[in-house]
């Protein structure tokens, strides 16, 4: 028990959250949600739209203080603080007025790293991902997949041990998406990161994760957790999709979600 507590790098304890609405009172978004993420684990969260997935991420990253409950990162209550996780959002959010290398260095800049160190680290990472020749280009000249790669590098370069990915592939076409899934998965595994991925894509969740968490409809809470582990077994998201259990998981999770949708309609 004690050992477990140490190995949980993120612990969401009984978190509830309400958004205040002057007309209809407060709207509950999350309801007594508890979740533990273990060291170096890849966990995906799927759930119906409006289940509060992004709200949960905003709470874990410290952008939002939950109405009730608490979040522990490495055993410490993160209330009122930010910067303890790497957070990659749905949109690439590259600053259009900054070049690629300046965008990549943003997190380091905020944390006070010297310009020479930012350049050096930035170039190093860009080289590794084959984007070196775009270092001085502006984001507007890059394709969607390249922009999302730059956003990923921007997250990695500050070297966070926990990374939150909020639907980072949703705006990309299918092929780019598969390539990026594979790429990001292998990088994160290699570097021993703990990852939480929010996605609408059940297939993506199964292909990439050790565990898949299914959330209920609003107010969101944990409905079901699946131990998948196909990506770890095959060492690849693409090959995980070919595993015969992939479809079983897909059906089970689809069912979990389908009931919600059915009730909503």
């Amino acid at each position: 028990m004690n050992q477990n507590a140490i190995r949980d790098v993120v612990e969401v304890r009984n978190v509830s959250h309400f958004f205040d609405n002057p007309e209809s009172g407060s709207i509950p978004v999350l309801s007594k949600l508890s979740l533990r993420i273990r060291q170096q684990e890849f966990v995906s969260i799927v759930g119906p739209s409006g289940a509060g997935k992004s709200t949960l991420f905003n709470i874990i990253s410290g952008l939002l203080t939950p109405s009730e409950g608490s979040v522990l990162v490495h055993g410490q209550d993160i209330r009122q603080s930010t910067g303890h996780v790497g957070y990659m959002m749905q949109k690439d959010l590259l600053f259009p007025w900054r070049t690629v290398i300046e965008n990549v260095g943003l997190g380091l800049e905020i944390k006070g790293a010297a310009k020479s160190k930012r350049k050096e680290l930035g170039r190093d990472y860009l080289r590794r991902y084959g984007l070196e020749s775009f270092a001085d280009a502006y984001p507007s000249t890059l394709s969607g997949g390249m922009r999302q790669r730059v956003a990923f590098i921007r997250t990695l370069v500050t070297n966070p041990d926990i990374i939150l990915l909020d639907e980072p592939f949703s705006a990309l076409d299918y092929q780019t998406r598969l390539v990026l899934e594979e790429e990001i998965l292998s990088v994160l595994r290699e570097q021993g990161k703990t990852v939480v991925l929010v996605t609408h894509d059940i297939g993506e969740a199964i292909a990439m994760s050790d565990r898949v968490v299914v959330m209920s409809k609003r107010p969101g809470t944990v409905k079901q957790i699946y131990d998948v582990g196909l990506a770890a077994l095959h060492g690849s998201a693409l090959r995980a999709r070919a595993d015969h259990r992939y479809n079983d998981f897909f059906e089970a999770i689809w069912k979990d979600l389908d009931i919600q949708i059915g009730r909503e309609a």
Binding site: G62, L63, T82, G83, Y87, L93, F95, L106, I110, T158
Partner: peptide
């Protein structure tokens, strides 16, 4: 853009950093 501000904050940015950089 609120999300740019949130991105800055997720990196732990102070208010003055958000002001000058975003």
């Amino acid at each position: 853009d609120r999300s740019l501000v949130n991105l800055m904050r997720s990196f732990g940015a102070k208010k003055y950093q958000v002001f000058w950089k975003v």
